[in-house]
């Protein structure tokens, strides 16, 4: 099990994953399919320790390795958000309710609900659509940049795709 990939997944759970983290996770899933189950379990452990209400919509998996550290917060890119969405749907992360019990004095225990649903959900489809759209956008960006360099003073740089989603409707 790749330690760095675990760290990336931990950052992912905290909503702090960079694009590099997401790419590392995808690579790890390719090389080590068992990581799917381990990360799923890890997501449950972390959610419970954070006091979230859980709805487990994934198959039962094996034990988990606890990551040692969490990355510093970074701005979540458009790409990272989309791929996060894909992974979130595919891995079927367990956090659904996501409200903090620390703020709910009347909630005496953490409810954990097991629900059997197919992994392929609307969310998965949406994430796939978003990923396809994002790849299309990268292609369009290149075509636009090349034309722009002939007709405007815009600098062309091969910056990593780091779009920040600012709106959606």
């Amino acid at each position: 099990m790749n330690k760095k990939a675990n760290e990336s997944f931990s950052a992912f759970l905290d909503g702090e994953a960079s694009e590099l983290d997401v790419q590392r996770m995808l690579k790890e899933l390719d090389n080590n399919p068992e990581a799917f189950g381990q990360w799923h379990s890890l997501s449950k452990v972390k959610a419970v320790t954070q006091g979230d209400v859980l709805v487990d919509a994934a198959p039962k998996m094996a034990s988990v390795e606890q990551p040692e550290e969490v990355k510093a917060p970074v701005v979540k890119s458009w790409r990272a958000r989309i791929i996060q969405g894909s992974i979130a749907a595919g891995v079927a992360l367990v956090v659904v309710g996501s409200f903090n019990l620390m703020q709910q004095e009347q909630a005496p225990e953490i409810p954990v609900v097991q629900v059997d649903v197919p992994v392929q959900t609307n969310q998965t489809l949406l994430a796939e659509q978003q990923l396809e759209a994002q790849e299309r956008l990268e292609f369009y960006l290149r075509e636009h940049a090349e034309q722009a360099s002939f007709t405007s003073g815009h600098v062309v740089v091969p910056a990593e795709f780091n779009w920040q989603e600012v709106a959606g409707e």
Partner: peptide, 8 residues
């Protein structure tokens, strides 16, 4: 049925 806006 979606509109997405991104910026860099």
């Amino acid at each position: 049925n979606k509109t997405s806006l991104a910026k860099m």
